[in-house]
Design a protein around this nucleic acid. Structure first.
Length: 553
RNA sequence: GCGCCCGUAGCUCAGUUGGAUAGAGCGUUGGCCUCCGAAGCCAAAGGCCGCAGGUUCGACUCCUGCCGGGCGCACCA
């Protein structure tokens, strides 16, 4: 039970005692000004209409009837009708016991309990190595998964391999050309092929591994052979890069194997037709996308081309409906900005097939503009020019890269200057946060070296922690569970990154001004408890971001 | 032309389902290491929150219209 939950109980009790109507919900915020208390609620304002009384009057009644609670020192009415709550310092200090008891579990919640979510992210085409944007998507997706799980959701993370269709064919043709070149033949890359050097390396690997130049069967069989071989290697390479980044997927699904081979696209089209949401026009079969209320698509979409071939959209509908939604109630796709036009039509299709509007979400991860020495680096997989995700990790490091990606909202474009990130790596906020953790661990090493015995935390007297800075620090820690719950609800890991930076910003001055190890044993143990709790929360928060909490730096 | 996203300090960005006096990092200027880690601390300068209306007790936040930037608008994937 969080602080605000307890305070909400207090408000409910007060409302009942004052004979006022019950509040549906009670929003709490942490005021900027210390004079406005530790928590404030505007419940009196929101209730004014229903109670037919002015907000100030309601707030006064609330203050008068507010039950005595160990948590609360006093409540005040201020401004147009805010109810400001001041926490009792002794209670605040004592909450450290709960944090220390909970340990790594501090910040876990139940707001998503019972939810089963399938979360797809990265899903780069298997036509080349991973690049910078993929690193951003990986950081965001992995962190969102951790956030959702921290709130009780069962999350399946997924990487979808588009190993079919025209891009697959382009890869197969490109790779075959490289293999022929490797065997000494003259072969030109296809027009829409992939010119990157990685396919030359892959061709060398193919030959070295005993791969044959001549493949039995027709052209289709040949392309299938070379395409499969290349895709397998590319996917494996991508998987390794992601693993080195600390990102592992529960499921690697295949467009060919899991959707097309099972005949699901045809089935999906039939199901839409059975619901009367398709029609024929100009020789093609259309989905009546615009007929789905609230989905927001502005035109109908083709499911089967005049040629009889199904569109990618039809395949994607089948994938979502039959594969992703099997056994889960929420599907989240983290998409690139070039796919945002697809969201309305997919939303329409999912609703048409009976999924509630909220069940399918597709947040957009915006682009990363990469700068090197202040100059934008142009990237194009097709032209074979790009900065690899691996290079980014080599230059910037895993922790700094992930943290940097998570200090921006995912739906806003990001500028990432490689030169600056490398040169100024010691000024990166991630080190500021990690440093706070390392400092705290260092205190513990000192304590151990000096042979100071630490009793169980529950036996440590916390009442000495009445200083303003100490109280401020503890109150920060109390916010953490709400912060995590909010970040999970909104799927916004950047809130955690910012909050951690702020927490470190409160801790560092405290550390500077107050010695922990000292002669006054009672004070020392109390401060040690506080620092330990801060370190624990930093470690917990960094874990949600997939960033390490180092013992030393 | 239509749709989505974005305009906040010199730069990069936060601003928690509308709250009280707008925040951080970098950069700039000036201080602090006999004391648990200076990857740190303290201080200064820096803002018509793109513009104009509207909604209300209250708007950076919601609505409308402009201006400016990005992306998408296939019987491609």
């Amino acid at each position: 039970m969080t602080v605000t939950d307890r305070l909400t109980d207090g408000v409910r009790t007060a409302l009942a005692a004052a004979g006022l109507p019950a509040a549906e919900d009670c929003a709490w915020e942490v005021p900027r000004q210390a004079e406005h208390g530790d928590y404030a609620t505007n419940v009196a304002m929101t209730l004014a209409r229903a109670a037919k009384r002015p907000p100030r009057q309601i707030a006064d009644a609330l203050a008068k009837n507010f039950p005595a609670m160990p948590e609360v020192a006093r409540v005040e009415v201020a401004g147009p009708g805010f109810l400001n709550v001041f926490l009792a310092p002794a209670w605040t200090a004592a909450t450290l016991h709960e944090i220390l008891d909970a340990g790594a579990a501090y910040g876990l919640g139940t707001s998503h309990a019972g939810q089963r979510t399938r979360l797809e992210f990265v899903s780069a085409n298997p036509t080349g190595p991973l690049v910078i944007v993929n690193a951003r998507a990986a950081a965001v997706g992995d962190s969102v998964a951790r956030l959702l799980r921290s709130q009780g959701a069962r999350v399946t993370t997924e990487f979808y391999v588009n190993d079919a269709g025209t891009q697959f064919e382009a890869l197969a043709r490109s790779f075959e050309a490289r293999v022929r070149q490797e065997f000494g033949e003259t072969a030109a890359l296809p027009e829409n092929g992939y010119p990157g050097e990685y396919l030359i390396d892959l061709a060398k690997e193919y030959r070295a591994g005993g791969g044959a130049l001549d493949v039995p069967g027709d052209e289709r069989a040949r392309l299938e052979h070379f395409g499969r071989w290349a895709v397998e290697r590319m996917v494996e390479q991508q998987r390794r890069t992601l693993a080195a980044y600390g990102v592992d997927f529960d499921v690697w699904s295949s467009e060919q194997r899991d959707v097309r081979d099972r005949g699901l696209p045809e089935k999906a089209v039939q199901e839409l037709a059975a619901r009367g949401l398709t029609y024929e026009q100009d020789g093609a079969l259309w989905f009546r996308s615009t007929a789905v209320e609230g989905a927001g698509d502005d035109q109908d979409r083709v499911l089967r081309r005049r040629t009889g071939e199904l569109t990618y959209f039809a395949v994607d509908i089948a994938f979502h409906h039959y594969v992703k939604f099997a056994g889960v109630d929420h599907v989240i796709d983290l998409l690139g900005p070039d796919h945002h036009g697809h969201v309305p039509r997919m939303r329409a299709a999912m609703q048409a097939l009976g999924h509630p509007p909220q069940a399918f979400q597709a947040p957009i991860i915006q682009l990363v503009t990469l700068l090197r020495d202040g100059q934008p680096v142009r990237m194009s997989k097709r032209r074979g020019e790009f900065v690899l995700m691996e290079e980014l990790l080599d230059e910037v490091g895993r922790d700094a890269a992930r943290f940097t990606f998570l200090t921006r909202r995912h739906d806003s474009p990001l500028e990432f200057d490689l030169a600056v990130a490398t040169r100024q790596s010691s000024d990166n906020p991630v080190y500021y946060v990690q440093y706070a953790h390392a400092r705290i661990r260092s205190i513990h090493r000192q304590v151990a070296e000096q042979g100071i015995a630490i009793p169980a935390w529950r036996d440590v007297d916390l009442t000495p922690l009445t200083g303003a800075e100490e109280q401020a620090l503890i109150k920060r820690l109390l916010e953490y569970p709400n912060l995590v719950a909010g970040a999970a609800r909104a799927a916004e890991p950047h809130r955690v990154a910012y909050w951690l930076t702020e927490l470190a910003g409160v801790f560092h001055p405290y550390y500077k001004n107050h010695r922990v190890i000292q002669d006054d044993r009672t004070l020392m143990l109390a401060r040690l408890a506080l620092c330990t709790a801060v370190g624990q929360v930093i470690a917990n928060g960094l874990a949600l971001l997939g960033v390490s909490a180092p013992e030393t730096m």
